[in-house]
Design a binder for these strands. Structure first.
Lengths: 336, 336
DNA sequence: CCGCGGTGATGAACCGTTTCCATTGAATGC
DNA sequence: GCATTCAATGGAAACGGTTCATCACCGCGG
């Protein structure tokens, strides 16, 4: 079966290849009548334009690259999945690449994507500080882990955390502990600010106020557990009645810590997480958490790359609202 | 900055474009000396061949498509990540697509990939029975959920489960419960067979032997929990001393059930899971599980598509060995 | 000494589109 | 009614590589 090309279509329709091309690209200057005829032939023949030839001439690949640190992280895999959906709705496809939080690999991946002539890149930068020279020519949108000096899209971590902490305050909690993320992570610091906002402690931009109710930890399960232990292993009157964790994994680790200490959740301890990963609804009891609008982030990133939406200016990232997802780990505090 | 093309390289090196092309493609008939000179110029200029132009003429896109039901499933996200690694090591890139277990979407995605001229497709078919007409021309390798009538690659579920059950037998367990997967899932049935193998019950290929120690359930957490409840809510002398779950999520749900019933793990109940997802090492105690060789599966799939490895014949899938990962949820049974 | 096979390199054709320019015919302006 | 504009289409160049037919050159056997 000799594959059908644009010339075959043109011949059958009795027009020139140029006209067929214009039909394919919805160029306005084609008669409706002609357009219809060509379309019919295209369908009949099952003709599909060759993307390589197309891209070679037009410099448009209808391909978007996405570079993330780790696909097995549920947050990122959902991000990729959402981006794929959003891109597909515009006729675009996604090339995924993993950087493993390695700056060199990351640069290499971006180079590959550049030479592939993708039409844009969605980047979640690796955590290691590094001078990433982004190719000027290519539209890149930084997502989630905003880089100072680059514009990007993320959820509004600060207000999101505030939302969760305010929920606890509204329930009557006053001694609210906070499990923070790693000190040098931008989103982690934003979350901390949200906590301080809600607790009424002014963020003076300087040294973090040494509060015995704040524990620093990595975002993972085990770190959350030991941070929980740290916050909970004290006399009942000084122990927080609620804990806000900077990630769901931390929160789940913290639940474990509470359990091991014989502290019932939510009766004696309320816990709120952050992220809204699928696992959060699989715990017992179901975790109350602040959900990041991953789909919206992905959709916005794609929209920006495709110029359906203005690119956010440097220093003025698009921040999308988080949402409180009430589970079963929060209740009013017991009277002492 | 005028972009550098193959002609520029050729001119600078004092050779023809043909020669440069052959250097690029490691064609043998180029003098070492010339090859070196051309390579130098290429580096100096930072020349990168245009993949579109390349692919147009050579019909090779260096692109592999991967279609999976759901990227947020940890098993699949790890599969994609591994495939990306394997492909990258051969100079290939990955286009991901999600079918959401919808046959129509799946067919559409495969069509898109075909028209993109990918060099091959890795497919994890959706669970809905359907007549999937795979394009003949394109190399496709079916992974994990093998389809009868198609050849593919998967882990050896049957022997994997046997491994886990034999581990329990070796520890001295005799009443070993089994949480099965959904009745119509091919891998679920393979796993069940492995259990029956190990337990010495011949698989007559007919109706599943009604054993009170087998519980059917979906692969998720909640189903595992209720299956666990079902198996454990009985007199101690009839209660299994160990349970093998067909997925890690089931196993974790089962741990929860045991906990709620006041049955200590592993003291009074050993539990083994299946899959080896990251979460399995985050539970307390750490889950003993049978690990699927996801990386090997991905590597093999890529190798087959790239003709580095013979395509498995229909009915003769490549089966890769699982591995027992000993955690803390197994021990010898208590004396009654 | 000449023809011959084989190697390494050349230059042009070629891949399948898009896009530019020329052309045509119709509509518009004067 | 004729020049001018403009919209619609045709034809061909262009895109940036790969590959094919060809050729020059070299060593070697007859």
């Amino acid at each position: 079966m000799p594959k059908v090309g644009i010339r075959d279509v043109a011949r059958l329709a009795g027009v020139s290849t140029g006209t067929v091309s214009r039909v394919l690209n919805d160029h306005p200057s084609v008669t409706d009548e002609l357009r219809a005829r060509v379309r019919r032939i295209i369908d009949d023949l099952g003709y599909m334009p060759d993307p390589s030839a197309r891209s070679m001439r037009s410099k448009v690949s209808r391909l978007i690259g996405i570079v993330i640190p780790d696909l097995t992280n549920p947050f990122f895999s959902e991000l990729v999945q959402s981006a794929e959906q959003a891109a597909a709705s515009h006729g675009y496809n996604i090339i995924v690449m993993t950087s493993f939080d390695d700056a060199a690999k990351e640069a290499d991946r971006i180079g590959q994507l550049t030479s592939r002539k993708v039409d844009g890149i969605i980047l979640v930068p690796s955590n290691n500080f590094h001078t990433l020279k982004l190719p000027k020519a290519l539209p890149i949108v930084v997502v989630d882990r905003l880089m100072p000096g680059y514009s990007g899209i993320a959820s509004d971590h600060r207000n999101g955390v505030r939302l969760g902490v305010e929920h606890l305050l509204k329930l009557g909690h006053r001694r609210i502990g906070f499990i923070s993320g790693p000190r040098h992570s931008v989103p982690a610091n934003d979350r901390l600010k949200g906590y301080l906002d809600a607790m009424g402690q002014p963020d003076d931009g300087g040294e973090i106020q040494a509060s015995s109710l704040i524990a620093e930890a990595a975002f993972d399960y085990e770190s959350g557990r030991s941070a929980g232990n740290y916050l909970l292993a004290r006399a009942r009157s000084e122990r927080p009645t609620a804990i806000f964790a900077s990630s769901d994994q931390q929160a789940i680790g913290c639940m474990r810590a509470a359990h091991d200490l014989g502290i019932p959740v939510p009766a004696a301890l309320s816990i709120v997480g952050f992220d809204g990963i699928p696992l959060s609804s699989m715990t017992t009891p179901r975790l109350t958490t602040v959900k990041q609008p991953i789909q919206k982030i992905a959709a916005a990133a794609v929209a920006v790359l495709l110029n359906k939406q203005p690119t956010p200016g440097i220093g003025h990232p698009i921040l999308l609202d988080c949402e409180l997802s009430e589970g079963e780990t929060t209740s009013s505090p017991q009277p002492d």
